[in-house]
Amino acid sequence: MSTNPQDQQASVMTGIDRTAIETQIIDFIRAEIQNKSAVLTMATRRDEVEIDSIDIVQVIFNLEEKYGIEVNLSPNTQFETVGELVDALIAFIPEEKLPRS
């Protein structure tokens, strides 16, 4: 689930399946990181799973290819949890392209 209560509220109102998109992006991240057996959730801390700048570039690229969008996020973006990164990435996906429940 999103770490941002307002996002959760908004999702309910628009029918967007927030959990589905979060899971999808977490899967993108899992595909890139070195530690394949790591447990990745929105609450997982970045330093627990060592997400580096290369992983972020790859995730952005794959997300752009999948959704046909532009994700203008720096590979040096600051975040402490996987959830913060996921939220930052979701912000670049237009609402009409997000999965609905």
């Binding site: 290369i54 790859q58 952005i60 690229f61």
Partner: peptide, 10 residues
């Protein structure tokens, strides 16, 4: 066929 690979620069 698409873009250069994401890590082309480094």
């Amino acid at each position: 066929q698409g873009r250069p690979r994401p890590l082309t620069v480094p």
